[in-house]
Each structure stands twice: as structure tokens, then as C-alpha cells.
Design a protein around this nucleic acid. Structure first.
Length: 418
RNA sequence: CGGAGUGUGGUGCAACGGUAGCAUAUCUGCUUUGGGAGCAGACGAUUCGAGUUCAAAUCUCGGCACUCCGACCA
């Protein structure tokens, strides 16, 4: 798109009420807008990145048999009372509201209850299992303290998948598949090397759950990593039982700060029994469905990427989730550069390369600074000099080096990277 | 929820209880054009409410908002 058409503006300084690097850079670059503590809106550039992350997750969820749905945010009290999760004493981060007639409602902080209840209408026989449903949906959590920019917010989109299986074996097999799928997702997004499958508390559902923890000082969790096994333990299960389950010795582990970018749980029959989601087995008996839940926060992922990949000048997006492939900069603007830049812009679009074309009537310094801040992987400058030379000036945002190449070489290199 | 701190033009900062100032952004004009240009002019602000005082951005109390530390965190 043409940058002159982009309503969001970059800014030189971060607002003083942001300390977290992810929020500072994303606000300065015009990716997000802060509505209030822990509540952020996504602007055009931010939504492109968020949707790219979502699309990667979607592809991987479909790959393991997920069916996409969209559940309601408004939740009925009754459903949550059947599992004893309505009471504020049991779940203290509910946002609750009321209908005009005083009927109490909740804004969903998760969706085990409503989906389990819904599935009663669709799962009746062992022939209907297994099933995997997932969604990208807004969760509301009344955190006592929002912090770290978009890493911990009160309203956020979450991908949550729920599995419904007829046997423990069937569940366990899917659980492993989901774990592998998550590893693939984090690799595709570019944080694979710093992300560890981490043993964590299973809460009231099972002994352990698996978290996906990405090493960064911006994280809130402490994990203990076994480099040999490429696995980690959350501090909360750093005890004899946890060590035994993972099969590591305490002295072989190293401590690190990390952010939880994903979490998968075995739920057993906690919800299906309480809500009455059963199926008729081969032998005619009625059995509760065995469930699991699998979450990833796309916005938190986006924040994590910014924390991991940025420098003094701004963001350095991994290619897989950058808002555009190329930042095309025309400088200075006159008739000849405009003609050349427009032609290149159109050609690149035709070749299937996404381009942010800085056609603004601004000075070179401002354009370059904005480009560094926005962080698109490849920058191309069109100027009188490059037109005379007949070569494109191509700069890598990550590596910083400048190379000269022709248009077809450029397209080939972008295609190769995709 | 406990503790600490901060609220001033769009943004970032300043102002002893006594004329609210600077930078940047924005607008106009001229000059400029490969790393946030120059000159001239213009627009624009004390979080809200009470109190103390001749006089409050400044002191006191309360509300609201935000940040940080901690607790909490399917």
C-alpha cells in the first residue's frame, strides 16, 4: 500500500506511560493504540501483523484436524455454575455485567463450559469422536495488574482449541500432535530457538500441563532449562516430583526468565462430567468425553517477537509475520523518481510481493528513520542515483548490509525467502 | 489487593506560592532535498473536586487515571 494512504503516524518518542519495549515500539510505529491500562486497539499495520500470526496458527490447527468456530463472549451464569466457576471467590478475574432485567452475565475469560455444553448437541456416539474445535476469540480477564504492554492485557484475542476424545489413548495421541504443532507454530513465527516446551502445574485438572516458554527478560515466569533435553520446568513445579517426571537433575538446569506464549492442558472428564457431555460407546454404555484445551495468545506472541527482535532504531520483524515484504522508499520525490518507484511498486505487486511504498513528500532522513522503526525486512531506495545506475539499492533491516540487484533478482530473493 | 511514584499544549519536558516556558508535531510562506533541514509567522496546555491563601501548576484532603515493585494469574 501507499504510505500516504496510511492514517497511522509514527512518533519520535514513546508516551511516558509505557515502559515495556514492545508497547513503546508498537505505539511509536503506529501498530497499536492504548485505550487504557491493559487494553489495546490494533491499527492497520498492527492488524496485518496480528492476522499473519493468526493465519500461521490457523494453518497449523487445520493441519491437525481443527475445525474453526466462533463462540460468544457473553456468557450465561447457569453454565458456569455447573462447574463451580461462576463465583468470584473461585475465579477472581471475571468481568460481569447485567441485562436490563438484571440477569447476570459474564464476559468469557475462557470457553470450556460453553463449548462443552454446546457439544452435547453434536456428540452422541463414539462415532462422533474425536473432534477438535478452535477459535480466535476475545477473552476478558480482570487482571489485578495489567503490565508489560500487550503481554498481559485485560482484553485479548486468544486461539483456544478444545479436543474431545473417547479414550485416554486417543487423547494422549492428539495431545502429542498438538504439542508438535505448537512447536511448528513458534518456529514459523521465528521464535522457535528461544522457545522451550516447559513442564508446568496442571492445576486442578491433571498433574502437569505443558507451557511454551520463550526466553526474554520481559517475561514474568522463571523456568529451569535442560539444554541437553531441550526442555524446561516452570518454577512452580521445580520440586522432586517435577524433576522426576522430566527425568533431569537440578544441578544440570539453568534458570531463565521467560514468557508463556502457549499452554496445553489435559482436562480429563472435569467438564464433560459436570456438564453432561457423554457418548454411547461400542458396548452401549454411556461414557464422559475426555477433553483437552490448547491456548495461544497471538497478541502476546506479537509482543514477544518485538521484545526479541528490535534494536535502537526500531522493530526487526521476522519475514513470516512482517506487515510487508518490502519497504519501497522514494527519495527525494520528483517526476522521474515517482515514475520509477510507481512502476516498481506495480511490478512487485504483480509478482506477488507485498510492498509498503513510501510516496510521501518527506525528507530522506525522516523516511529512513520511519522505515527502521516500522521494521519491514527489506528496504529499497529509489533515487536519481539508483535510476542512473539501473540497479536497485536493497538493504536488509536485520543485517544492515546494502546490496545492488536488478528487479528480477529482487523478486527471486523474496520468493525464495517465502 | 499491599507498597512506591506520576498527572502541564497532540507528544516529550520546564516553571521558588506571584506573567505557564522550551522542544517536537501541526498550519502558512520562502528556501532546501540520501539519515528526523533553515528562516519568519500562527494554533494550542496545568486530571477532576473541595480546602488553605491577597494569590495555587506549585501547599492540604479526596476522587479519577497511569506507571513501577510485590501478591495474584486456565
Amino acid at each position: 500500500m501507499r504510505q500516504s494512504q496510511l492514517f497511522s503516524k509514527t512518533r519520535r518518542e514513546a508516551p511516558k506511560d509505557e515502559v515495556a519495549k514492545n508497547a513503546e515500539l508498537l505505539i511509536r510505529g503506529g501498530y497499536i493504540h492504548k485505550e487504557m491500562a491493559g487494553v489495546y486497539s490494533f491499527l492497520p499495520l498492527g492488524l496485518i501483523v496480528l492476522n499473519k500470526i493468526i493465519q500461521i496458527i490457523r494453518e497449523e490447527m487445520n493441519e491437525i484436524g481443527g475445525e474453526e468456530i466462533l463462540l460468544a463472549s457473553l456468557q450465561q451464569k447457569d453454565t458456569w455454575q455447573t462447574t463451580d466457576r461462576w463465583d468470584d471467590k473461585k475465579v477472581d478475574n471475571w468481568f460481569k455485567t447485567k441485562l436490563k432485567n438484571d440477569t447476570e452475565l459474564g464476559l468469557g475469560f475462557t470457553h470450556e463450559e460453553p463449548l462443552t455444553a454446546l457439544m452435547r448437541e453434536h456428540i452422541r456416539s463414539y462415532k462422533d469422536l474425536p473432534r477438535y474445535a478452535y477459535q480466535f476469540q476475545t477473552k476478558f480477564r480482570n487482571e489485578t495488574r495489567a503490565k508489560s504492554g500487550i503481554m498481559r492485557s485485560r482484553e485479548f484475542i486468544m486461539k483456544d482449541l478444545y479436543s474431545f476424545s473417547k479414550s485416554q489413548k486417543e487423547h494422549d495421541e492428539f495431545y502429542e500432535k498438538a504439542k508438535e504443532s505448537y512447536i511448528t507454530i513458534f518456529q514459523r513465527i521465528g521464535i522457535g530457538e528461544k522457545t522451550y516446551v516447559t513442564f508446568a502445574s496442571g492445576g486442578s485438572f491433571s498433574k502437569f500441563s505443558h507451557e511454551f516458554q520463550t526466553i526474554t527478560d520481559a517475561g514474568e515466569d522463571i523456568i529451569y532449562i535442560s539444554d541437553e533435553k531441550k526442555i524446561a520446568l516452570n518454577k512452580e513445579v521445580m520440586n522432586d516430583e517435577g524433576l522426576a517426571a522430566v527425568g533431569v537433575k537440578k544441578e544440570d538446569l539453568r534458570e531463565a526468565k521467560a514468557v508463556e506464549v502457549g499452554n496445553i492442558f489435559s482436562l480429563g472428564t472435569r467438564f464433560s462430567e459436570a456438564i453432561g457431555l457423554t457418548y454411547v460407546a461400542l458396548d452401549g454404555s454411556k461414557k464422559p468425553v475426555i477433553m483437552g484445551s490448547y491456548g495461544i495468545g497471538p497478541a502476546r506472541l506479537m509482543g514477544t517477537v518485538v521484545e526479541l527482535f528490535s534494536d535502537d532504531a526500531g522493530i526487526v520483524w521476522p519475514k513470516s509475520i512482517a506487515p510487508f515484504d518490502i519497504h519501497l522508499i522514494e527519495v527525494p520525490c520528483d517526476e522521474s523518481t515517482n515514475k520509477a518507484a510507481t512502476k516498481l511498486y506495480e511490478n512487485l505487486k504483480k509478482a506477488g510481493v507485498s510492498v509498503l511504498y513510501d510516496d510521501r513528500d518527506a525528507r530522506a532522513g525522516e523516511k529512513f528513520s520511519d522505515s527502521d522503526l516500522i521494521g519491514i525486512p527489506t528496504r529499497i531506495v529509489i533515487s536519481k542515483k539508483t535510476i542512473e545506475e539501473g540497479m536497485l539499492e536493497v538493504k536488509s533491516r536485520a543485517k544492515g548490509h546494502v546490496t545492488k540487484m536488478t528487479e528480477s533478482q529482487l523478486v527471486a530473493s523474496i520468493k525464495k525467502a517465502q
